[in-house]
């Protein structure tokens, strides 16, 4: 699951995750989407860029 807050600064970032994921899937530029969502610091941005969703991988082994 996507982290609720930025590890470094503590900003609540999870609320922007689904909008980000949707817009990236629509083919928008990542940097422009992050700017638009108000994720301006690089500590928060790296979490969006580097996130790997594991729920679907874990789910069969429950």
């Amino acid at each position: 699951m996507f982290p609720v807050r930025c590890f470094t600064c503590g900003k609540v970032i999870a609320s922007s995750w689904e909008a980000y994921k949707q817009r990236i899937a629509d083919g928008e530029d990542k940097a422009a989407v992050l700017d638009d969502l108000g994720i301006t610091r690089y500590c928060c941005r790296r979490i969006f860029l580097a996130h790997v969703e594991l729920v679907d991988i874990m789910a069969p082994y429950q």
Binding site: M1, F2, V12, S15, W17, E18, V55
Partner: peptide, 14 residues
Amino acid sequence: AEMNIPIIELKVNQ
């Protein structure tokens, strides 16, 4: 403070 923070994704029957 925000209503759209994803907490956990539930699969079927979870």
